[in-house]
Nucleic acid binder design. Structure first.
Lengths: 346, 346
DNA sequence: CCAGTTTTCCAAACCGCTTTGAATAGCTTA
DNA sequence: TAAGCTATTCAAAGCGGTTTGGAAAACTGG
């Protein structure tokens, strides 16, 4: 069913039918009703491609999902982020276009979005330190919103981010308050912006208490379960083992926990653990009593906010261009006071 | 840069330029080269919307991601499935369109894909028993491939699936061989097709050994970590507790493990555990020695295969329309013989 | 050298919608 | 009742490509 066919059925011109359906004032209420009824009856919906060719708007938003070329890893938070963003898109009539690209070849994905003209805006994922994609997108002139921020960039851009520094600073202070002095940091890849900020928070808290951050206690890597496990085993086997571990992802935390228990120790008693929790839907941190003490912020909510911001930008609506979400610190069973033994001897 | 502009620069007609770029034979090799060079130099790429309006092909494939309306849960396997499919799409020039929809309203998503004409094909996720979407899509007449199958449907359709029944039958047999007699099943939602097949495999293995499946040992629910944990605790607290547990997802298995250990028992010694492993990228089952004994099949590979099959169908290429992937059974540390104590008294 | 092919290129129509500019119909108002 | 508005409707021109049906140019061979 095309517009022309429908207009023939109605004995009207395509012009009038189009206007009736799009709510233009130059059409009488009577015919508008008649047209709407006929459209519904015949199941007419405008052909997206024709419409967007005519209007110049694609009514679609692009996401570039980077796959780490080395480890073929897809970030588990994407699922929930996209679920949140998708909600907002469909409410506003936008489609979501996904492009899965090895992260050493992302430029071409953005370029092709632009030159092929099939999206009106982009969400930028997983920004790094001084991310080159930001100047790239600025020069290409397509609206975009960054999920996260990019330290050391002077260019300006719209973003939605969690206050990673504050979150990890608070978490570290909390551990310090419990008497821990040797606290390990198991972080994401070190060029990732969120990892940089979390580390900054961690170091700031230590320094404020007169403790010099120890490079031997700080780790960066891809946030898999295995990484958490392996690191923990080596860490705890050291003579000068940490009494607490601060972890950047729930999934890694599970590995850390496994490591702790394999060593015959107990989480929350022998070793304390705080993790960041993105509130992934299939991995709720205990509905009743949280298993893990965690800095918590819903990535799905971030998805909603980023999507809304992008739509606002595209429609030239006036609204904030920077949103900083605070993570709360939820108390779980994975933290406890540094035991005298540990606290004393170390 | 539009086709017309480019053709003006070259002093050629749009027709010729279009043909040159699309590899038609009616253009001399010399001009083809000249055109290609100019296109590259000026960064010309055809406008997707205009092109697909003209050709009638959208060059895009739709995925409908259902969000369980009740639990707002997004299936963790989507990320990896989509990563696999995306690879194949981009290699073939297709875009991927995602529609995130509450699972009580999926019909409208498919219908809108069709009426708005913005995809050439669809991948159907998470099929259920006698899934109504299959007849719907058959009547709509849009090419599609199902990731999974739908029991009890007489309609025919193209699919890529894991041999779930065989996998769980083998796993159950393996546990039986180890002397286990009371084996619990922690499955996905019971209307999901994969869950039905896995249960069938489990029951078949038991029955073949003269054991009547015990309804008190079979559970169905959303596959979260919490569910695994909670079920395990109640199960193991029973007087007649199972000595082995068969689990449908790695994430649930983690919860089961947590439950086991909280009860002061050891996985692989006091309680055996086999899980299905989709080989999620951030949750590899131990690179060296697998932690879990598991029925294993890469969901990313399934994504690749499903995408390729769909493209073959859309391009009327002759290739299989049904792919059954066998899961292998990898031996890990989570299984062991039923201890005499357990095997004897129960 | 010329009719018959084959190559190479082009003008124009079309895909399905929106939008501009103009025409028609229906009301007012003087 | 004619002139002047306003409320409706429509024809036609795009949007940026592809594709059909020729036409011109370049090659054949007799």
């Amino acid at each position: 069913m095309t517009l022309k066919e429908l207009s023939n059925i109605l004995g009207l011109s395509p012009t009038t039918v189009s206007r009736a359906l799009n709510g233009y004032p130059e059409v009488s209420e009577a015919t508008r009703k008649r047209v709407a009824a006929a459209a519904r009856e015949h199941g007419y919906a405008p052909n997206t491609r024709a419409r967007s060719l005519a209007t110049g708007r694609a009514m679609a938003i692009g996401h570039v999902i980077p796959i780490s070329a080395k480890h073929e890893m897809v970030n588990p938070v994407f699922g929930d982020f996209i679920a949140g963003a998708g909600e907002v898109y469909s409410r506003n009539g936008y489609d979501m276009l996904l492009s899965v690209v090895p992260d050493d070849d992302e430029d071409s994905a953005y370029r092709s979005f632009i030159t092929k003209r099939n999206v009106d805006g982009i969400i930028l994922h997983a920004p790094t330190l001084n991310d080159p994609r930001i100047p790239l997108l600025n020069s290409l002139g397509l609206p975009y919103v960054v999920h996260g921020r990019s330290s050391d960039t002077d260019a300006s851009y719209a973003w939605v981010d969690v206050n990673n520094k504050r979150a990890f600073q608070r978490a570290t202070e909390f551990l310090l308050d419990l008497g821990h002095r040797r606290i390990a940091l198991v972080n994401g890849l070190e060029h990732m912006d969120f990892a940089i900020r979390r580390r900054a928070g961690y170091e700031a808290a230590l320094t404020a208490r007169g403790i010099t951050p120890d490079a031997a206690l700080m780790f960066a890597g891809e946030m898999t379960e295995a990484q958490g496990h392996d690191l923990t085993r080596t860490l705890l086997a050291q003579p000068n083992a940490p009494t607490a571990i601060l972890v950047s992802s729930m999934i890694t935390a599970i590995g850390v926990r496994r490591g702790i228990e394999e060593m015959g120790l107990r989480m929350g008693r022998d070793v304390s653990l705080i993790t960041h929790d993105d509130e992934l839907s299939y991995f709720r941190n205990g509905a009743d009593i949280p298993v893990y003490t965690a800095t918590r912020s819903s990535v799905r909510d971030a998805g909603r906010k980023a999507a809304q911001m992008l739509i606002d930008i595209m429609q030239h609506r006036d609204s904030p261009r920077e949103i900083l979400l605070e993570a709360d610190l939820t108390l779980g069973l994975s933290t406890g006071p540094a035991t005298p033994l540990h606290a004393g001897t170390r």
